[in-house]
Amino acid sequence: MIERADAVLAVVPLLAMSGLALRTAIAATGVGTGLLAVPLAPAGYLAAFAVIVRELLAGPAARRAADGGDERS
């Protein structure tokens, strides 16, 4: 079974590369559309950054820290 942390670690690089892949696909279909695809490159990086920030501020680790730390010790 896939854990939440594994899913988050898998989605971050996929999102980071998705903007570049989408930009390449659009630019490859035509010359004039290359200028329209320029803003798509940083979109993947911003989406990956948003996932990281969300996990740090609202994920399980943040909830454990707000509740008083690690319960195993």
Rank of each mutant, 00 (worst) to 15 (best):
I52C: 14
F49N: 00
A27E: 07
P13A: 01
T29H: 07
V53M: 08
A58Q: 08
D6Y: 03
A43R: 03
L36Y: 08
V8H: 07
D70Y: 03
G30L: 08
L15E: 05
A5N: 13
A65F: 06
V38E: 13
D6N: 07
A58E: 10
L15S: 05
L56N: 09
A65C: 04
A61W: 02
P39C: 05
A47Q: 02
L35F: 15
I52D: 07
E55V: 04
L57P: 04
V38I: 15
P42V: 02
Y45R: 11
A41F: 13
S18T: 01
A47W: 05
V53F: 06
E71D: 11
A10P: 00
P13I: 04
P42F: 01
G69C: 11
V53E: 07
G34I: 09
L46M: 10
A58S: 14
I52N: 02
E55M: 12
F49H: 08
A7T: 14
G44E: 10
A62M: 02
R54Q: 10
D70K: 05
G19I: 00
F49M: 08
A62I: 02
L22A: 15
I52E: 08
L9Y: 14
L57F: 14
A65K: 03
V12S: 04
A50G: 00
L40C: 06
R4D: 10
G30Y: 10
A7F: 13
D70T: 10
R54P: 00
A65D: 09
Y45G: 15
R63N: 03
A50P: 00
L35R: 07
L46I: 09
L15I: 06
L35I: 12
I52H: 07
G19Y: 04
I26W: 06
L57Y: 11
G32Y: 12
S18V: 01
S18M: 02
A10E: 03
F49E: 06
A61V: 06
Y45S: 13
G19Q: 02
V8C: 04
A28T: 12
A10K: 01
A41D: 08
P13K: 02
A41I: 13
E3Y: 08
A16I: 02
A5I: 12
